[in-house]
């Protein structure tokens, strides 16, 4: 665990020292604050729309940070050959994978905390409501979803040596699941036959990332999601993240270290 934490710390330090990370981070924070500061005659519909746009921005930004950060971790280690002095120490490739995952996940978690803080302040100032627990649920479920995404991207980074190819493919897969994943069962019903069976199989195999999206609960001020459902969603995310991390380890364990 000591080694995994040390590796995660290096990932965080690199992000902290890279300038490009701040561009997206500051941009999202500024847009969220700016939109929040505008008052449109206190019309509740406009406030709701603003909340929706800000939450979409938070989702997109967090996804970009997670995917781009995770995609370059292992290829960068191989390309710059920093993996050699690292693996010459008592470090296993499994620990490298876990350290990279933990570092990326903590980094996106930190970014999410700040995003939700801005969002909370903005919407609280407009509505005079402070539903802290609702925000916590939204943050937690989104963070869990990002764990699955990061693990998926890491496994992609072992398969595709070019991070750009991995980023593009992962974005397509994640956005595809978020937008269409929930409707695949209905599509399967309409198709029938072999194609329907295949679509059904895909529906049951893919990680349903859309289940973690509770933005509507925040936008329409709905009550809390039952905590038991949150627990099942967390467990679901852990299982999928563990599966992708295991796949990453399997692929990376015998992979040549040079690109």
């Amino acid at each position: 665990m000591n080694t995994v934490l040390a590796l995660a710390h290096i990932v965080l330090k690199e992000l902290y020292r890279r300038k490009d990370f701040y561009v997206l981070f500051v941009l999202t924070a500024v847009i969220t604050l700016l939109m929040g500061s505008i008052r449109f005659f206190n019309d509740p519909n406009i406030v709701r729309d603003l909340k929706e746009i800000c939450l979409l921005l938070v989702w997109v930004s967090a996804l970009i940070i997670a995917v781009t950060t995770a995609a370059r971790q292992i290829p960068a280690e191989r390309e710059s050959r920093t993996i050699f002095p690292l693996l010459a120490k008592p470090v296993t490739r499994g620990q490298v994978v876990m350290g990279k995952f933990l570092g990326c996940w903590l980094a996106t978690g930190a970014a999410l905390v700040v995003f939700y803080l801005f969002f909370g302040i903005m919407s609280g100032a407009h509505e005079d409501r402070w539903p802290v627990l609702n925000y916590f649920q939204a943050f937690w479920l989104q963070w869990m979803m990002l764990a699955v995404v990061i693990a998926l991207v890491l496994s992609g980074s072992v398969v595709f040596s070019a991070p750009s190819a991995n980023i593009t493919i992962c974005f397509c897969v994640v956005l595809g699941i978020l937008l269409l994943g929930g409707h695949l069962n209905q599509v399967a019903l309409q198709q029938g036959g072999l194609l329907g069976t295949i679509t059904y199989t895909v529906y049951f195999l893919i990680p349903h990332l859309e289940w973690f999206d509770i933005r509507k609960f925040i936008v329409f001020n709905w009550p809390l999601v039952p905590w038991l459902d949150c627990f099942w969603a967390t467990l679901y995310a852990i299982i999928y993240a563990a599966f992708f991390l295991f796949a990453t380890w399997l692929l990376f364990r015998r992979k040549a270290l040079t690109v």
């Binding site: 330090k13 890279r18 710059s80 002095p85």
Partner: peptide
């Protein structure tokens, strides 16, 4: 991995984290 607990390794080229 424990076999590498008591060794030090210097690679031919300098492969270290440049941001540290």
């Amino acid at each position: 991995p424990i076999a590498r607990q008591r060794i030090g390794y210097l690679p031919e080229m300098t492969y270290y984290y440049k941001f540290l």
